[in-house]
Write a protein that binds this DNA or RNA. Structure first.
Lengths: 149, 149
DNA sequence: CCGAATCCGCGTGGATACTG
DNA sequence: CAGTATCCACGCGGATTCGG
């Protein structure tokens, strides 16, 4: 049962990886990690978490202004899902006109820490990725999919 | 310009967050971070990276066996995309029957470190998320979407 | 101002069959 | 074994309209 050691950062990575792979499908009847990871796969969740982490508290339209290109519907759906998962709180003020404020929960902030690191990685390596794509496209094929650029 | 300090881990999080938000749309003509993050959003990329990181080198069908439910087509597409982004190498042995081996690049391994941390977070908090969902569903609505469970 | 509801185009991704 | 090619269902998500 030989394996490649990925523990080159001395941070129990190998152990964590084993745990993750063991829980990919289902974790003792709870939700498979796959579904949780999928939550950050959708188009707007991470951006919402970033902006709420940055601003602290935001009203619906304030958040909408900050997220370029999001539709009203998708922002609503996204925030509801985040609320349901316990990552965001939604506070309603029964005024006229109505006011609704969103904020990260403690759980949401703990997630923020993780995706900041991921975003930081993306930010630091985007140039390498773009160059790899250029080489790939020049070498063999025309772009697999022009929408990937 | 008051802001919520997210630097509660003493790890320059606030600074990183600013950088990320500044590069969300486009980073000096390169690829927006959004598109890079979207790469880990698709259903099979992270799982492929996890398993390649775990095993080191895998042939196509070895990897396919490890990823439960992936179709041949989607694994091919996923691996091509990862190869194009410079995250995975694809080595072809001109034999009969053909043999193709996949392996993470250095760039891929540096990404692996990040998504292991994310997966570890998901693994450690999945129970909290599931409980939050139960509370939410019991409180106000019936499940927003039964597929989310 | 903050949504809910409806309609619908389009891309993702599964199933199947076929090649080198 | 490791793909490609084709067909097609389904659901994401945009546009629009209506409500509290």
């Amino acid at each position: 049962m030989e394996r490649t050691i990925v523990d080159y950062q001395g941070n129990r990575l190998e152990e964590k990886l084993q745990k993750i792979l063991g829980n990919v499908e289902s974790e003792g009847g709870t939700c498979p990690i796959r579904h949780i990871l999928a939550r950050f796969s959708d188009k707007w969740s991470t951006l919402s978490i970033f902006h709420l982490g940055d601003a602290g508290t935001l009203r619906f339209n304030e958040l909408k202004k900050r997220i370029d290109g999001v539709s009203q519907r998708m922002l609503t759906v996204t925030l509801r899902t985040l609320e349901r998962d316990g990552l965001v709180t939604r506070r309603i003020y029964p005024e006229i006109p109505p006011r609704v404020e969103y904020e990260l929960t403690d759980l949401g902030r703990s997630l923020l820490v993780q995706i900041i690191e991921l975003g930081d990685w993306a930010s630091n390596h985007s140039k390498q990725i773009v160059e790899a794509r250029k080489r790939f496209d020049a070498r063999e094929h025309r772009a697999i999919d022009s929408t990937l650029v």
